[in-house]
């Protein structure tokens, strides 16, 4: 694995290795000294063209716990705001000797383009409406920890599938790992060719809920309403929101996930978000472990992850 651009690039063995490594590394987070020397002397650049405090902090924490040097480069107030192209920024990072570049960008494919211009590893931290592979890895990790398995697990992903990089990466990764995914959304928020994706599709949340082990709710942005993808927020919420009544239709050990940031009262009600069966804060914690694992596997070379062998 040279870059991580798409969840679809991972074989079943590679994806499982990431999850197993993350589990090993998670132990570090429970220590009083949360630091490993594994990536000492390596430089990781966080190149964020979109505001995403949550993801940037997660990657930063992951890199620092592995002792990497972290450079945060945000588009605002930088050469980018003066009109510098992605290619020139890439060449600058290259000249500075970045071993890994974590990129978040509003353009689909930006991570792939960057990978053609730098020698270091490129880690896609969300590119437009394309993919967000580490989110899918941390979601799979969370499911495996909670449910004990991924094979045969029934996962419903609900919301704005069409514009969701989280949904794209999850469909690919969960399929690779043997889970059964059902996408649930109004037809306007599904891609036209969704019938060719390796998953099932439904327009009816109530029908899918009782048959699900995991329900993953996606954020629905108000701007979609203005573009007539659905009539009103209230109608969306009524048909596709996970409220207390719908939550009751789930079987007792089913869990509720959300990649955040969530809009309480729109796609998820407060009591569901705060329920013990919601994994939303766990997902955040697991995000650090999974990103440590990915950074280690991309940049770590032959040293062992925990480094306690000698």
């Amino acid at each position: 694995m040279r870059h991580l651009l798409s969840a679809g690039d991972l074989s079943r063995d590679e994806a499982t290795l990431v999850l197993d490594t993350a589990r090993e590394l998670a132990q570090v987070s429970s220590r009083s000294v949360k630091k490993l020397p594994t990536l000492r002397g390596r430089t990781v650049v966080n190149l964020f063209y979109e505001d995403s405090t949550r993801t940037r902090i997660s990657f930063e924490a992951a890199a620092k716990r592995m002792s990497a040097d972290v450079i945060n480069f945000s588009a605002k107030g930088s050469s980018v705001s003066k009109g510098e192209s992605l290619k020139d920024t890439a060449l600058t990072l290259q000249a500075m000797g970045a071993d890994g570049v974590v990129i978040r960008h509003s353009a689909s494919g930006a991570a792939r383009r960057l990978a053609g211009w730098v020698d270091g590893a490129v880690l896609n931290a969300g590119d437009g409406t394309h993919e967000h592979p580490t989110q899918a890895l941390l979601d799979a990790y969370t499911m495996r920890e909670r449910m004990g398995r991924l094979e045969g697990l029934r996962v419903a992903i609900v919301g704005d599938i069409r514009h969701s990089r989280v949904a794209r990466s999850n469909v690919l990764l969960l399929h690779t790992l043997g889970a059964e995914v059902t996408l649930v959304a109004p037809p306007t928020l599904l891609p036209v060719s969704v019938g060719t994706w390796p998953c099932a599709v439904s327009y009816d949340l109530d029908e899918v809920l009782p048959k699900s082990d995991v329900v993953m709710m996606l954020r629905v942005q108000a701007e979609r309403m203005r573009a007539a993808f659905f009539p009103t927020a209230r109608e969306y919420s009524r048909r596709y929101g996970l409220d207390r009544d719908r939550f009751a239709r789930l079987h007792d050990d089913a869990i509720v996930m959300h990649p955040g940031p969530m809009i309480r009262g729109m796609e998820i009600s407060a009591e569901v978000a705060d329920s013990p069966r919601s994994t939303i804060t766990e997902q955040v914690a697991n995000g650090v472990s999974v990103r440590m694992a990915v950074l280690y596997l991309l940049l770590g070379g032959s040293e062992s992850a925990i480094g306690n062998g000698n």
Partner: peptide
């Protein structure tokens, strides 16, 4: 719109030109 709307645009997350 960025490219032909279909299987490829949906996979790549590029807005479709139907």
């Amino acid at each position: 719109a960025q490219m032909n709307e279909g299987v490829v645009s949906d996979r790549l997350g590029l807005a479709g030109w139907p």
